[in-house]
Structure formats: C-alpha cells, structure tokens
Nucleic acid binder design. Structure first.
Length: 454
DNA sequence: GCGGATCAC
DNA sequence: GATGGTGATCCGC
C-alpha cells in the first residue's frame, strides 16, 4: 500500500500524476496500469493543463495538511466527546435503515460506443472510441484493454492505441436508443428514475411481488428484454437502496448482474472491504483526502474513524460518510425535480482578443435565450464562467431585480461581468441563468412576448 | 447571495 | 497541436 506512495519522487514522476481516467474501471483488469500512467504523464507534462493539475494537487495537499493539523490538536477529551457524538449519530442513522424496498440500477454497457457499433457493424471487435482528439466520451471494451477510457483526451488515447477508431458523438442516436430502453424500464417501475441517457434506478419491490419473482430474476428478465428491444447489453445491480444498487451494477459489468440481499448482515459484509471510491459521491479528491488524512480506504473504516469524521467535518458530510459505512442509502420514491439552472458553454483556442470574446459571449447569450424560450423559463441570477488560458476557472454572478430571458438582456449583463475581468486570455466562456421559482407563473406571458417578436 | 471546489455522466 | 458540456451541491464567507 504505502510502497508505491513513498517511491513517487524517486525517478518515477508519473506515479504522482493522477487523473480521473487513470482509475480502475470495468474492462481494465488486464491493463498495464504503470505503462498507461507513464504515457499519460509524458503526453501531459509541461502543458498548461498539466500545470493547472499540479496547482490543484498542491491545493489539495494543503487541505490535507490542515486537516492533519486539526487532528493532531484534538485532546483526549475532544476525542472522547466526538466519539460519543458519532456513536449516537450511528444509532440514529441505523434506526433509519429500511430493508423493505428492492432497488435495481441498470447501466448500459459502453452505451454510446455500443450504439455506434449497432449502426456500423464493421466496428465490431475493433478498438473504438466515441469522441474527438480533445475528449473521449466512451470507449468500447476492446479499447479499454489499451487503457483508453471515457474523459481521456483523444490524442492520448491514440498514443495508447494507435489503431483506435474515432467516431464523433451523435446524441440524437443515443436519445433514440435511450427511449427504447426506458420503455422497457417502464414495465418494471412506472416511476423509474432516469439518471442519464444510459442509467436508471427502478424500485422493483412491486414488480417482484406481482410476478412472484426474486430481484435477480427480475434483473435477468429486464436485461433480456432490453437486449431484445435494442440489441444492446446492460448490467444491473439489485440491492436494498439506490446507493448499494449502483455499486452492485458495476460488479459484473459488462452484460452481468449482482444481487445484494435485503439483509443487514449481508450488507455489512458487502460494504466492509469495499473501497470508498466505488461509492457515488466519493470522487478523486475525497478519496485522496480520506486516505491521507485518516487512513480510510474502505467503507468499514468510515465507522472505525467515526469520531474523527464527526470532529472534522460538517454534520451533513459526516452523516454521509457514516451512512456509507453502514451501507445506508435512499429508498424513497424519487421526487420530481425541477431544473434549477440552465447554461451554455464553449471552449475555443485561448485568446485575449476582446472583439472575439465579446462575439463568443453574444453567441452564448443567443443560444441560452433560445433554450430558455424553448422551456418557457426566465431567471434573475446570471452567472458568467471563465476559464483562462492557464485553466484557472472563475465565476462572476449578478442577481437582478427583474426576471429576464431575452438574448439582449442576457448579453447586456454578461458583458458588464466580462468587462470587469479584462484584459484576460480565455479558452472558455459559459453563461448560466438560474433561480426562477416565481417565474414559472409568467410562462404564458413569455410565450406571448416571444410570439409577438416573431 | 457569491465564488470556489467537487462530483457525476 | 491538442484535456468537454450540463447540472447539482456544499462550504466558507
């Protein structure tokens, strides 16, 4: 464990360069991780992107050191106090455990890539990635054997796998197939929760009861049905809550499933050795922080460090970490969520040409306005997001007295925000609008205005 | 309410 | 030569 960590700066600098795509993922079992890591590092080294990653890494390191200092300052009395707080909280969380529902998480296998292969069967069996030289959205399993992965830039992927075939993204196609899969999901849970085009959560408690079937049997049937309707394979996880079902769907990927029974002992045994990074909501940074500040690597260790977690984190963060240790997750019906913001962003080659930047902003304002009109939305908080040539991200926001939606109004306020940042060299601009709760009442007026305009 | 950061897909 | 776009949430002001 600690071995690879301590040898990081002894002539193998690539070992300390971590990205989201040098992490374990289904289909990458036989991959020479060391080699992939080295190539990613060599392709990145010296770039503006790389330098920014180093700055971010230094910031996280600082955060970890601050946390270690705080831990060191805890007195015995503090520790015993927070342990009592934690023990009480664990009992309260345990009391909320609900083992009465059966949740299923479906995850389509390499979805975009699989759809592209359906429409072009000559791609079958060849390493292929959906995306561009800048960014890969999905890689098929043949490509993953080379270490090629989603979120990896295409030019690095090509270095890892020179024969890699690139296919551009085509969301219309994916939406079509996504709709087909959702028709199948509907048969098992009319209120299923779509997490994205290729993922969904289903409460199959009733389906199990009505069909007199086990969760595993329902999962088999659903996957078969999805295949018959689409020609695409998927993986499924079955468990007592959504958090666990999601972890389970990853276990026998691709084209497989895993069932975790609704039994407290089974859940605790399952969770105990599970690496925390497998849990949705724990990403690269949190994994790093919990490992280096507390020595936490598995979910079980969340409970073993419960006192420290309660001492160092906010109530809501500590609750989440303890819940993970207990294998708790949401089991309630998904509430209908209203969108809270709408945005548009574009990346371009970095420039400080002000006329160009204002033109980009005008284009974005227009696109945003069109999207808002399509949805009958207006908002009063406008946020401008900028990414500098050195990858530093800034956001600047204003909250207005009136609700707006026209491109003219958006541009007027966004321009003011941009002007205050000049001169600046940028590679990305984003415009976002939010907070329109009261405003949905005005939909009819907006439509009227819009019709009048055209 | 603002701005930075994290996360997921 | 080259590292995305959209939406949500949390924390510390």
């Amino acid at each position: 464990m600690a071995k690879s960590e301590s040898s990081g700066d002894t002539g193998r600098p690539w070992q300390s360069y971590h990205t989201v795509y040098t992490n374990a993922k289904a289909g990458m079992e036989g991959v020479d991780k060391e080699k992939v890591q080295r190539i990613v590092y060599e392709m990145s080294k010296g770039s503006k992107y790389f330098e920014n990653e180093e700055r971010k890494e230094a910031y996280i390191k600082q955060k970890i050191e601050n946390m270690q200092d705080q831990i060191a300052k805890l007195t015995d009395a503090d520790i015993s106090h927070y342990q009592k707080v934690a023990d009480k909280r664990i009992l309260e969380l345990e009391a909320t455990r609900d083992l009465t529902r059966i949740w299923l998480h479906v995850d389509m296998d390499a979805f975009y890539a699989a759809v592209e292969t359906l429409s072009n069967p000559s791609l079958n069996g060849k390493p292929m990635a959906v995306g561009s030289m800048s960014m890969i959205s999905t890689a098929n399993y043949e490509a993953r054997r080379f270490g090629v992965r989603a979120a990896m830039p295409g030019f690095i992927a090509r270095k890892l796998c020179p024969e890699l075939i690139f296919v551009p993204v085509d969301f219309k196609k994916y939406t079509h197939y996504s709709d087909l899969t959702r028709k199948v999901f509907q048969n098992y849970d009319p209120n299923f929760m779509a997490a994205s085009l290729d993922e969904a959560y289903l409460d199959i408690t009733n389906a199990c009861y009505e069909r007199d079937a086990t969760g595993g049997e329902i999962a088999e049937e659903l996957r078969k049905s999805v295949y018959e309707e689409t020609g695409l394979t998927c993986s499924a996880g079955v468990g007592p809550n959504r958090l666990l079902a999601k972890v389970c769907s990853d276990i026998n990927k691709p084209n497989g499933q895993f069932v975790l029974p609704n039994d407290r002992m089974a859940v605790m045994a399952f969770i105990s050795s599970l690496p925390i990074r497998k849990i949705g909501g724990i990403g690269k940074v949190t994994e790093h922080l919990l490992r280096d500040a507390f020595g936490i690597a598995t979910c079980e260790e969340m409970l073993q460090n419960s006192g420290f977690l309660c001492a160092l984190f906010s109530r809501s963060s500590a609750d989440f970490f303890l819940s993970v240790g207990l294998g708790l997750g949401r089991t309630d019906a998904p509430e209908v969520k209203l969108r809270k913001s709408i945005s548009n962003e574009r990346t371009f080659s970095a420039t400080d040409d002000e006329a160009f930047l204002y033109q980009k902003l005008a284009d974005l304002a227009e696109m945003l306005s069109v999207d808002m009109k399509k949805e009958g939305l207006c908002g009063r908080t406008l946020t401008l997001k900028l990414k500098t040539a050195s990858f530093e991200v800034r956001t600047r926001a204003v909250t207005l007295q009136k609700y707006i939606f026209s491109s003219e109004d958006i541009l007027k306020h966004a321009s003011k925000l941009l002007k205050a940042e000049l001169p600046i060299s940028l590679r990305l601009i984003a415009a976002s609008m939010g907070y329109w709760s009261v405003c949905s009442l005005l939909t009819d007026q907006i439509t009227e205005l819009w019709n009048f305009k055209f």
